[in-house]
Design a protein around this nucleic acid. Structure first.
Lengths: 113, 113
DNA sequence: GTAACCAGTTACCTGTAGGTAATCAAGAAT
DNA sequence: ATTCTTGATTACCTACAGGTAACTGGTTAC
């Protein structure tokens, strides 16, 4: 798990921040969804998300592997292929994302009275 | 509502991003909780959150007012006092935050096997 | 009169997420 | 042979969130 200087008081917020770290950022959700949708290979994922660069994808995939949202398997064969697959743990995020979605939809209604 | 260049495909994620914008960032949740706990005045909120600067607090309060999470009332009297109060809308966030918390707690269990 | 309180604003600086582009190795295709 | 693919890594750069600190303007207390 990434250490992000969580030294504040309000330690009850630490798990909230952890979750926000896992799904926050510009690309993490897009990448996760791409993999959920069945994209398995590096270039495949990259191509499925316009404007995503290899550098960022590479970094995010490492993060997501550390966070046990995906598994990375190098297939011994030529050409070397790497397979990314979503974990069961990652799927528990769907409920959270749905909550965020529902609140967002309702929020838009509020804001644009 | 803040426009943050949400030009991507995957428009179903837009409401999710909206929500993340509203509760993301280093201070937003802390400030919201402080106000939920009953802190009403600028300096009161500022003092309740160590290391929070007036500049950042000022900016975040404006954001939160725009997002209808709080109301700002200037009391006509001397010294001028400003009162910040949480809206009902803000309270609908509690469920979302609870989901984030629960997932975060479970995530920690997973990661520190 | 000066020190401290309120509610901020302004100018300047820093750290980091993310963007751009080149490069690597190794095999396949033309 | 030289270009294309796959899966990345590296160096460099930029934009913006957030940090630091000084300052404003009005009020009250010592």
């Amino acid at each position: 798990m990434k250490k992000k200087e969580h030294k504040e008081c309000m330690s009850a917020l630490l798990p909230v921040r952890d979750t926000l770290d896992v799904i926050g950022g510009k690309w993490k959700l897009l990448i996760l969804i791409s993999i959920w949708e069945g994209n398995k290979h590096f270039r495949e994922i990259e191509r499925s998300i316009p404007k995503l660069s290899t550098k960022v994808l590479s970094k995010e995939l490492k993060d997501m592997e550390e966070n046990q949202l995906i598994t990375r398997t190098v297939l011994n064969g030529f050409p070397v292929r790497t397979e990314y697959a979503p974990t069961e743990h990652s799927k528990t995020l769907k409920k959270v994302i749905l909550e965020l979605y529902n609140w967002g939809v309702n929020h838009r209604k509020k804001i644009f009275t």
